[in-house]
Amino acid sequence: MENLVLYLLAFLVFPGFLFTSTFGLVVSWIDRKVSARIQWRVGPPFFQPFYDLFKLWQKELIIPRSAKGMAFIIAPFIGLAATSLLASIIGIINLNPEYQFVGDVIVIVYLMMIPPLAIIWGGFSSGNPLAALGANREIKLMMGYELPFILAVVTVFFKVGSISLGEIIQYQQVHGALLNHPSMLVAFAVSLLWLQAKLGEIPFDISEAECEIMEGPFIEYSGPLLGVYKVMMAMLHVVCPWFLISIFWGGTSMQGWGILWSVLKFVFIIVLVIIIKNTNPRVRIDQAVKFFWGWVTLLALIAMVLMFLGY
């Protein structure tokens, strides 16, 4: 019984839903502020993402006649639940690597596919041709970016000789961060590209291109449901970089100066994402898929070969 309460706390409060979403909204403020500074603007105030969210929560919810009601409503919540679960798993294992279970990395990789699937489901169920097109693109893009990323993760498995996150973190605590190896650096670069596509940022925001298909899958969502999606995207902005830090960069620690160092690592990755976002135009879907299956997969294979050679 006590365990259940603890699990619920981990899922809902820390490091699950509440903590990650709050942190995610702060990250989305950083995103908007840095973008604004790059574009010679001032940018929004600090609490802006929270205002947006509260406002969306108060707005009217319209379910379009063409939408398939239940799927339309459930889809965002499934995405949100999956993201919260991800956050709690990654967070707990980072806090205490003893809580690992065998194959948790594989579970995490699978869970990470659920938020895009939720977007796709929501898009298709909203009955709008543009949303369907956006969902269509999201599917293609997902097929593109998952392959090289899984190759990169497998490279880590071979390097460490384990498929559980706790052991990967413990290995790094002993031997130093995996990033010190050239092969892992290449794999990390592959993962950064995956991150860009996963978070739906330019140049890979093809599925929600506002000028072409008007936010794609989100076009028919309004009010609270849109808010749920916004929170989900904000949480993904925390969870995905956190996962990358865990498997490549020695994980995060919650003690003393470790907190500062963890936050710095995180901010580094996020700022990198924002800078890439602001200095590139959007690519086409065929260009993106070709890019991922061609160059990025090649890069992932190179990482693997380097790793087997012992670099």
Partner: peptide, 22 residues
């Protein structure tokens, strides 16, 4: 929206779908 005036300072944002608008 552009740098001279930058309405994002006040939280004003141009959205592309009427469903998101206030």
């Amino acid at each position: 929206l552009t740098p001279r005036f930058d309405v994002e300072r006040f939280g004003i944002k141009l959205v592309v779908s009427p469903r998101h608008a206030d």
